[in-house]
């Protein structure tokens, strides 16, 4: 079976052209559309359904930078999918605690404070993404895995921030 990058004819890299990915996804999707298999054998119909599900899976995985990074690492033998490992980086975790404390007192209708929080969070996230990109490029898989773990915390923070905003509306 082809891996997700091969499926889309893309080079195996963290940095990919999302527009290109989407375009190729749509093209492949069309080729597998059930209408095209209306007169096909049951076996071919089933095969098309299976391929569609693999295609969707591949697209969802590559579309999101975090799952894309995890997937690249899994191709290199670093499986993070079901890990129960804890992160023990006191400095990073202390900053996480401070973020959580800040979110606790943040009011969703305080636009200036919300904007400032989004901005800071996005900056910190981007810095981690840049570190991730250079680690992956350099083949530094373990540091890259650690950065992926940190980015999961940032993703969680962003979701919490969005929730605060939603609840204020």
């Amino acid at each position: 079976m082809m891996n997700h990058f091969e499926l889309f004819g893309l080079a195996e890299a963290y940095s990919i052209d999302l527009a290109e990915l989407q375009q190729r996804y749509r093209k492949l999707q069309q080729a597998l559309h059930p209408d095209r298999f209306a007169n096909a054998s049951e076996r071919d119909k089933l095969l098309a359904v299976q391929r569609t599900s693999q295609l969707n899976d591949a697209y969802q995985t590559l579309r999101n930078p975090l799952t894309r990074a995890e997937y690249i690492l899994s191709l290199r033998g670093v499986d993070m999918q079901h890990e129960q490992k804890t992160l023990q980086d006191p400095e990073f975790l202390m900053a996480q605690m401070e973020w959580r404390e800040r979110l606790e007192t943040l009011a969703g209708d305080d636009f200036a404070a919300m904007d400032a929080a989004y901005k800071e969070l996005d900056e910190q996230t981007q810095a981690l993404q840049q570190a991730l990109e250079s680690d992956l490029q350099a083949g530094a898989d373990e540091p890259a895995a650690d950065t992926v773990r940190k980015l999961k915390f940032m993703q969680k923070l962003r979701r919490e921030l969005e929730e605060i905003e939603d609840n204020a509306l």
Binding site: Q84, K85, T86, L87, P90, L93, K152
Partner: peptide, 8 residues
């Protein structure tokens, strides 16, 4: 200080 990446 510890954190769980799986759930943040």
């Amino acid at each position: 200080m510890v954190g769980a990446p799986a759930c943040g």
